[in-house]
């Protein structure tokens, strides 16, 4: 499906009546005369009003009723006599998608919108309000992300310098499983906004996530530094932790020193470093037992560099 239509349908399920209705609508009283109504509709350029008495909606009167009245002679009388009594109403908290079904099923052109708790009139819903509301929200929703992506993805083109690079840094807390992976998920979004090719962003995100998990599992704290240039994305992740005594052994698939609680969380099966290696174009792992570990990974964004 065209993503724009998908977004429209999503909005129908997200938006509520209160989000888009025309508030403080023009109302009439049942004792006002039909001749007054004619002037109101003409002067305010509207096609109907809710009829309100003692703060409650008692009816609805439309231009169709006015035409009917005019064609049957136009003898002046109170609105009360010509209005549709006890009209169907919508509640402010209903989903937009439900109201569209109301328009379809009833054939009416407008519905008073009332507060479910006290029955007071809040606004009026017309097909025009739906269209305006949807277009407004759609434009807003699409624009926000588009603008962000546009701005970010043109940074390298818009700025001129001999060398261009962006650094983004995150701190990682050891043993904090609630936050584990947050930096990597945020970074994936950043890369998308920067216009990095999805495959490159995907590989960096996976490598970064595994590396972040390693810091959370084994170390007390760590720092993740991402560097983005027009040629490559890279990550340097340094931690203060126990270090790795035998890197060769640690790289072996299936080898792990993780405690049982780590395995229960779905990690620590000796696959992390392997996954990182498979995703990276270059990987450099250095460690000093008792001090910490530094992992560097690079992924090249330009084909020519891959064969260097």
């Amino acid at each position: 499906m065209d993503p724009r239509f998908a977004k429209t349908r999503e909005l129908l399920y997200q938006l509520r009546v209160a989000d888009i209705i025309r508030r403080e609508p023009i109302v009439t009283h049942p004792d006002q005369m039909m001749s007054e109504l004619r002037a109101i509709l003409r002067d305010r350029r509207i096609s109907g009003t809710p009829v309100v008495e003692d703060g409650r909606v008692v009816g609805i009167i439309s231009i169709e009723d006015l035409i009917g009245w005019l064609s049957s002679g136009g003898q002046d009388c109170p609105i009360r006599e010509k209005m549709t009594r006890d009209p169907e109403v919508l509640y402010a908290d209903q989903l937009l998608v439900q109201t569209i079904q109301h328009f379809d099923a009833s054939g009416f052109g407008r519905f008073p919108v009332i507060d479910r708790r006290d029955g007071s009139l809040i606004g009026i819903m017309t097909k025009g309000a739906i269209i305006e509301g949807l277009l407004g929200k759609l434009e807003h929703a699409l624009r926000e992300e588009e603008i962000r992506q546009y701005r970010a993805s043109h940074i390298f083109e818009d700025l001129t310098a001999e060398y261009k690079e962006i650094y983004l840094t995150y701190e990682v807390k050891g043993k904090d499983f609630d936050l584990a992976g947050k930096a990597s998920t945020q970074m994936k979004r950043n890369l998308k906004r920067l216009g990095i090719h999805p495959d490159i962003a995907h590989r960096l995100a996976i490598a970064s996530y595994e590396a972040e998990m390693n810091v959370v599992i084994y170390a007390d704290r760590g720092v993740m530094e991402y560097r983005i240039t027009p040629q490559e994305v890279s990550l340097r992740i340094r931690d203060q932790g126990p270090g790795i005594a035998d890197i060769e052994k640690a790289m072996r698939p299936g080898y792990s020193t993780a405690a049982d609680w780590v395995r229960e969380l779905g990690f620590g099966a000796g696959m992390g470093l392997q996954n990182i290696k498979k995703c990276a174009d270059r990987m450099d792992l250095r460690s000093t037992p008792g001090v910490g570990t530094t992992l560097k990974i690079r992924i090249f964004t330009r084909k020519a560099n891959e064969t260097e």
Partner: peptide, 9 residues
């Protein structure tokens, strides 16, 4: 939470 984070990544 890692189920959702893994999915997102």
């Amino acid at each position: 939470l890692q189920v959702v984070r893994t999915s997102a990544v």
